[in-house]
Design a protein around this nucleic acid. Structure first.
Lengths: 204, 204
DNA sequence: ATTGACATACATACTAGTTGGTGTGTTAAG
DNA sequence: CTTAACACACCAACTAGTATGTATGTCAAT
């Protein structure tokens, strides 16, 4: 049963779940250990501190989640209308009650840690920035295709969309109610449709 | 120097600052005590537990802040165009670097506590709901005045605005940059203007 | 003199992190 | 092929510090 990479991965996954649920500061090392049947010595062999474990969670798990949910779908729909792609993406965001109640890992961590630990903040900001850049790029593509209004500034619109989604995540998480999330997504979709040129009203 | 109400108020204010900065769970009773020159006995005379102190912070401080920033301004502009009032409100939200970096107390607490403690959640939701209701009411008023588009659903639009503002708070807090906040507010203002009837483009 | 409003010292529990040791697989000399 | 040396991966008890909460005492005012 000696498999260091598996051990490390196990630790990371369990730590992510614990952090996702209780926040980083309130996540207990002992709880992570109990969830993995790994001992403290092993954890501190693989990660030199709790902070280092947190950084690894961001870089190896949270970044991947964002990538899977946003960046890859956006890049894979290269030739199609980006508004259509974005609508698909926001509609595909996790919406089961369990997910809504726990919120978004990225937002949770950012909200908790960005003012307390600059190392956390920088790593999280890298993700936000990559996401913004990716959406902006797609919007620019749409502008040259004629599927996106030319009067809007891609980067600002991207930020606006991200803020909207995050805001609804916070709202739905507080309400602990998936209906709040679904209603929010419908409104976001309507807003996304308003980004199309006035004469172009393709339906999905 | 015996003044129980003053002592309680001092405690509440210091506790709010501590919670605002470090989150509820990470706020230390000892730190609050150190900031007030009040002893532990006094604190536990006025509040039966740390949770009770948290509840009081929400009901007596966070609720008041929300009221002062949103509800009172909205009610005081009773006779005027609600879009105009809302624009004024979002522009008047705290935007000094210090405020932006710390985020919004309501959002911070909701984000941290709503899934961990139902008592916290309910108290926070009451505030959110009152805010939504208040904005919705103003929008309805605007609709009958003809200053707000009749095709939108007041409650949903109110939720949407709240989510937008919160989302930008999270974004700006993570960036730790007031410029992000200001840019977001400009976009929110533009969106608010789009809620006016198409033929009615009063400038502020 | 009793009660309200505190002060002090302490109890209890939990936390992250450390330390010295241990078994197992790998390497390389004889 | 055998075996000695070593490093990696891990274990489990322990330390030191911190957290909330409490028991008991005190003092001022009515």
């Amino acid at each position: 049963m000696r498999d260091p990479e598996r051990t490390r991965e196990h630790l990371l996954q369990a730590a992510f779940r614990e952090v996702y649920r209780y926040g980083f500061q309130n996540a207990g090392i002992d709880a992570i250990l109990a969830a993995t049947n790994v001992t403290k010595g092993a954890l501190y062999y693989h990660f030199e501190s709790k902070e280092a474990l947190g950084y690894a969670i961001i870089e190896e798990i949270v970044a991947k989640i964002t990538c899977d949910r946003w960046m890859l779908p956006l890049q894979q729909s290269k030739d199609k209308d980006p508004i259509h792609a974005l609508i698909g993406i926001v509609q595909a965001l996790p919406h089961r009650p369990r997910d809504v109640k726990r919120g978004c890992p990225l937002v949770n961590l950012a909200q908790e840690m960005s003012q307390l630990d600059e190392q956390f903040r920088k790593r999280l900001e890298r993700i936000f920035h990559a996401l913004q850049e990716c959406i902006a790029k797609a919007l620019r593509r749409g502008q040259s295709q004629g599927t996106v209004r030319r009067d809007l500034v891609p980067k600002e619109t991207a930020s606006f969309l991200i803020a909207m989604v995050e805001g609804h995540e916070v709202l739905a998480k507080n309400a602990q109610d998936a209906k709040v999330w679904n209603a929010g997504i419908r409104n976001i979709v309507d807003w996304l449709k308003s980004l199309r040129p006035p004469d172009n009203h393709k339906r999905s």
